[in-house]
């Protein structure tokens, strides 16, 4: 446990585990950053539009930092990692890839001269899903970065310290919005409860165990996923109760993302994200 690792001192087994960990961290960050930025310019109120965009931008920055660590370990350059891999190569959980649309969002969408995803978001999007996901994600993100600050993999510990500083604002924003929306009006309470029920099984997917968990934990590089999940549940339970929300129990977690098994939502998201880059993949945009 007392060993400190750098890219040059990782054993092949540890290197494979660190690479897998970094893909999970990077892909979660870029995908939630992308999702949340879909609201930029069309948020429910100017102040919230700005706050939400700002957290989205930070998450994109975190993704870049993790992709850079991957590049240091011999993986392709950051932009190629984000824009040239297919869904099956992404290691994000399904939770971050979920759209902002409620399950029953059906019906025609008029041509509003935005991209089709945004047209659908404008017509069917539900901010309660976005905000609830953001709250559950940020709480997990903070706990994870806190644990990674003391990672024995030095480059990761340094990045985690920097990220945790930024996450203070994400946390303040998400917790106060959760409180306001869950207690504001009958309608907002109802929407937030519905959102919690619908996203919670996916949120548990943040902590999908991987074959590298034990290796990473034993080497002091990252906490085990199950341990993190327990810590997260212990942390969010009083916050949800304090906001008057009922936490779902006996929930079957949605797993698969960490193994590259994804639904249509990630495929569609990546099609949006990668379409221009792939027009000239070797060019400079």
């Amino acid at each position: 446990m007392s060993d400190k690792y750098t890219p040059d001192t990782l054993t092949p087994e540890l290197k494979a585990a660190v690479i897998d960990l970094l893909y999970r961290l990077a892909d979660d960050s870029i995908v939630i950053g992308h999702r949340n930025s879909e609201w930029t310019g069309i948020g429910p109120i100017l102040e919230e539009d700005i706050a939400f965009s700002s957290t989205a931008q930070d998450k994109m920055g975190h993704a870049l930092a993790f992709y850079n660590l991957l590049h240091e370990l011999g993986e392709p350059k950051p932009d190629d990692l984000a824009f040239l891999r297919d869904a099956k190569d992404f290691r994000c959980c399904s939770f971050v890839a979920m759209s902002h649309l409620p399950a029953n969002a059906e019906g025609d969408v008029p041509e509003l001269m935005n991209n089709p995803t945004r047209n659908r978001l404008i017509v069917h999007g539900d901010w309660s899903i976005s905000l609830m996901r953001q709250f559950l994600f940020v709480e997990a993100d903070v706990l994870r970065m806190h644990a990674l600050e003391s990672s024995t993999y030095q480059p990761l510990a340094a990045i985690a310290r920097k990220i945790r500083g930024e996450l203070k604002y994400h946390l303040m924003h998400a917790e106060s919005m959760l409180r306001h929306l869950a207690t504001g009006t009958d309608e907002s309470r109802k929407r937030m409860q519905q959102a919690l029920n619908s996203v919670y099984p996916h949120a548990l997917g943040l902590f999908e165990p991987t074959q590298h968990d034990k290796t990473l934990a034993n080497a002091g590089i990252a906490p085990g996923e199950t341990h993190l999940r327990d810590e997260w549940i212990e942390h969010i339970t009083p916050l949800l109760a304090g906001a008057g929300l009922r936490q779902p129990t006996d929930v079957e977690p949605v797993f698969g993302g960490r193994k590259g098994r994804h639904g249509d939502e990630l495929v569609a998201l990546l099609a949006d994200m990668q379409k221009i880059y792939r027009m000239e993949p070797t060019g400079t945009w």
Binding site: T40, S53, S54, M60, L64, D79, F83, N115, R118
Partner: peptide, 21 residues
């Protein structure tokens, strides 16, 4: 804003979010 999802590099994506914000 409608082009943020298609911005063709991480740098451009962050800059465009920042600009629209």
């Amino acid at each position: 804003g409608t082009w943020i999802p298609h911005a063709p590099s991480l740098k451009r994506k962050m800059a465009l979010v920042a600009k629209v914000q």
